[in-house]
Amino acid sequence: MQRVILTTGGTGGHVFPALAVAASIQEKFPQCEILFLGGQGPEGDMVKRADITFKDLPAKGVMGGGLKRIFGSFWIFKALAYAIKEIVSFKPDVIIGFGGYAGFSPVLAGWMLGVPTAIHEQNSIPGISNRILGKVVKTVFASFEDTKGFFSPDKVDVVGNPVRKEIIDFASKAKERSILVFGGSQGAQAINDAIIEALPLLKLEDINMRHQTGKTDFERVKSEYKKATVNALAVSPFIYDMSAAYAEAQLVICRAGASTIFEIAAAGKPAIFIPYPHATHDHQTGNAQHLEKIGAAIVIPQNELTGKKLAQQILNLLCDDETLDKMAHQALKFARPEAAASIVNGLEVIIRMKKTGGLA
């Protein structure tokens, strides 16, 4: 494997699995060149921080409407032309997309040019981009079993969701009565509001907090912590060292994107999930229910969320070491720490198929 294009964008939830696969490629093939094609969102900074070449392309989100909606958008033709230009110049052995609207054009362009292509579908219910791409790529790597038949069964390889190696490898004892709160890479106002309401109750029980608010809500949340005389130094707009943050927490309160639930599982942490109700096809609820069903998590729908209810759940769990231990054990059983390496192995297979005369 000499040259690979990875493509996705929009949120950290899409980008982090791609970076985990990039790290696995670099570990197995140190001389391999990696090009990351993404959108004009936060992925550029994330990828550059990982010291990977990044180029952006025009892209906009599309939900529903299928082929007509996508190809009725002007940006798709501009992005497709740009992707073709980059692929012809870079000459990749393989292209893999990790979902999101920014990853659509490069995978489609690669297929059009005869380059071996694959996608990774991280959620239990795929979005429109991956549903379309699933018809043309050679392999669909999936986090969950495709029980509803969105993809051709002979293409699906269930590998789990790739998790950053530092989260898998980081090991330290959690702080007593400690929680980690976050709403994804961009924050979640509903979770922030519930925690603010819960602060007086959590303070009474001397709960240690670490809270990622998202950039737009940071100043407001920090101010509320100060008003409640709770340590505001524990509040930040973004946590870069998530491995340490997971390790220090006894319990995690967060959304339920696929990257999040697989990271929590890999870290062996009990969780309270508050799925984002407006996610495409409500996939976060489906994601969260996988861990709830095996006893690794509790799910609170956002329309039932209050500060009091959240505080009660937090305090009940932190006072019950036996339940926390059982939840942590079930989380680790769900984890797929080998997911990134499995994807790299799968990419090798479709490259070999191309070289030996198989279809890309």
Rank of each mutant, 00 (worst) to 15 (best):
Q312F: 03
Q313C: 07
Q313A: 08
I314H: 01
I314S: 00
I314M: 01
L315P: 00
L315G: 01
N316R: 08
N316G: 10
N316L: 12
L317D: 00
L317I: 02
L317F: 01
L317K: 00
L317N: 00
L317Y: 02
L317M: 00
L317W: 00
L318D: 00
L318P: 00
L318F: 06
L318E: 00
L318K: 00
C319R: 04
C319G: 10
C319F: 13
C319S: 13
D320H: 01
D321N: 14
D321E: 12
D321M: 11
E322I: 13
E322N: 10
T323W: 02
L324A: 01
L324H: 02
L324N: 01
K326P: 14
M327Q: 03
M327K: 03
M327R: 01
M327D: 02
A328D: 03
A328L: 09
A328Q: 02
A328H: 02
H329Y: 04
H329P: 13
H329N: 14
H329A: 09
Q330C: 07
Q330I: 10
Q330Y: 13
Q330N: 14
A331T: 01
A331K: 00
A331W: 04
L332I: 08
L332K: 13
L332M: 10
L332T: 15
L332V: 08
K333E: 08
K333I: 13
K333H: 08
K333R: 06
K333M: 04
K333C: 06
F334N: 11
F334A: 12
F334E: 04
A335V: 03
A335H: 02
R336F: 14
R336S: 14
R336N: 11
P337K: 06
P337N: 09
P337V: 03
P337E: 11
P337W: 04
P337I: 05
E338S: 15
E338A: 11
E338K: 09
E338D: 11
A339V: 05
A340D: 10
A340S: 10
A340I: 08
A340T: 06
A340N: 09
S342A: 11
S342L: 05
I343E: 01
I343M: 02
V344A: 05
V344W: 05
V344L: 05
N345D: 10
N345I: 11
N345W: 08
N345H: 07
G346Y: 05
G346I: 13
G346M: 04
G346K: 07
L347V: 15
L347F: 09
E348P: 15
E348H: 07
E348Y: 15
V349G: 10
V349N: 10
V349D: 14
V349Q: 12
I350R: 09
I350S: 12
I351F: 03
I351R: 11
I351E: 05
R352A: 07
M353T: 15
M353K: 05
M353Y: 13
M353N: 14
K354N: 05
K354T: 14
K354S: 09
K355H: 11
K355I: 10
K355C: 13
K355F: 11
K355E: 12
K355T: 05
T356F: 03
T356M: 05
T356C: 06
T356H: 07
G357C: 03
G357Y: 12
G357K: 15
